[in-house]
């Protein structure tokens, strides 16, 4: 059992506050992704869990044991680094077996484990090579195999796929997900790539300026963003926003149209809808098409409603020309509302 509990972790570098009071519980065998733009503190949090960085305050517990005072090797963790950190002077075999040798495991046990994980990562034919003779993707496999060979309670990954080309990244993403699910290890995975996060995670923690803004399942983060930041960070293109004014109890006026909305006494709200959740209709928001981008699978149209830019994803058969007027009907159950003062979602 390796449940991870992060309690009130804060970290500052001089005057810069990298993490503010982070609280997060990661269940045993859960695949948790820390997602955020660079500088949001996600790597710092991972490095604090790994023991490579010391928190300014707070506690880290793994499997019911407080570990933040222990050295990295005593925490029951293994890590995959962004630049792989595959030792160049050791063969692939010795790289994978490095941690096992440090634990002074007997030779045949080292061989058994190295061969098992090398098979898992499909690198058994590379065991005698040096890292200078490997491609980036192969080095990445070695780095993952080295972590798996430790049979750790927790595996930490710091943007492990970011140095690979797009095609390889997609392939490794699926493979890594499978291997980790099979290993029954708790995993924390840091990335700035939302597609990676969505496709791999059991849960995503979206981080922004040293805070966790939302920690939820990928579909929840996508459908029900807890804050405007999440709505505009996740999704490509992100959510659309329009200002809304009250028009009676639970009624809001958006660009001349009235919608059912939350029952609050706020003077202004923001209406939000994902680009794919709108259909051309008889009645709805009136928009002027500005830019039309056929993307094969669908048609991306950037239009204008009032002063605001607004993106819609239409069926690829739709015929839209720049300058054309569109009437768009939002799918009612997909409309979300945000408070512009707190930036938080309003139900």
């Amino acid at each position: 059992m390796a449940e991870i509990q992060i309690k009130n972790i804060a970290k500052s570098f001089g005057a810069f506050q990298a993490l503010n009071d982070i609280n997060l519980t990661i269940a045993d065998q859960e695949f948790m992704v820390l997602l955020g733009a660079s500088g949001c503190g996600k790597s710092t949090l991972l490095r604090i869990i790994a023991g490579l960085e010391v928190a300014s305050s707070g506690e880290v517990w793994i499997g019911g044991k407080r570990i933040d005072h222990l050295s990295p090797k005593d925490r029951g963790i293994a890590m995959v680094f962004q630049n792989y950190a595959v030792f160049p002077h050791l063969t692939v075999f010795e790289n994978i077996g490095f941690g096992l040798r440090m634990k002074k495991l007997p030779n045949d046990e080292v061989t058994r484990r190295v061969e098992r994980v090398a098979g898992l990562m499909h690198i058994e034919m590379l065991l005698k090579r040096y890292s200078g003779e490997l491609s980036g993707g192969q080095r990445q496999r070695v780095a993952v195999a080295r972590a798996l060979a430790m049979e750790p309670d927790v595996i930490l990954m710091d943007e492990p796929l970011s140095n690979l080309d797009a095609l390889l990244r997609m392939e490794m993403r699926a493979e890594l997900k499978g291997v980790l699910a099979e290993s029954k290890t708790t995993a924390i995975y840091v990335t700035h790539d939302q597609v990676e996060a969505m496709s791999m995670a059991d849960r995503i923690s979206v981080m922004h300026q040293g805070d966790i803004v939302q920690a939820a399942s990928p579909i929840e983060v996508y459908r029900d963003p807890a804050a405007k930041f999440v709505a505009s960070f996740i999704g490509n293109p992100p959510m659309n926003f329009l200002p809304a004014k009250p028009a009676g109890p639970s009624k809001w006026q958006v660009a001349g149209q009235t919608f059912d909305g939350p029952n609050t006494d706020k003077a202004v709200l923001q209406f939000a809808i994902r680009p794919e959740d709108m259909q051309p209709a008889e009645q709805g928001l009136v928009a002027t098409a500005k830019i039309v981008e056929p993307l094969g699978a669908h048609l991306l149209v950037t239009c204008q409603i009032g002063d605001a830019l607004f993106r819609v994803i239409l069926d690829s058969d739709a015929v839209v020309k720049p300058g054309q007027s569109l009437t768009l009907a939002p799918q009612p159950d997909r409309v979300r509302w945000f408070d512009p003062d707190t930036t938080l979602a309003v139900a």
Binding site: A50, L52, M79, F87, M102, M150
Partner: peptide, 8 residues
């Protein structure tokens, strides 16, 4: 860092 994590 890798060496630290892997127990050297």
């Amino acid at each position: 860092e890798a060496a630290d994590v892997f127990g050297a």
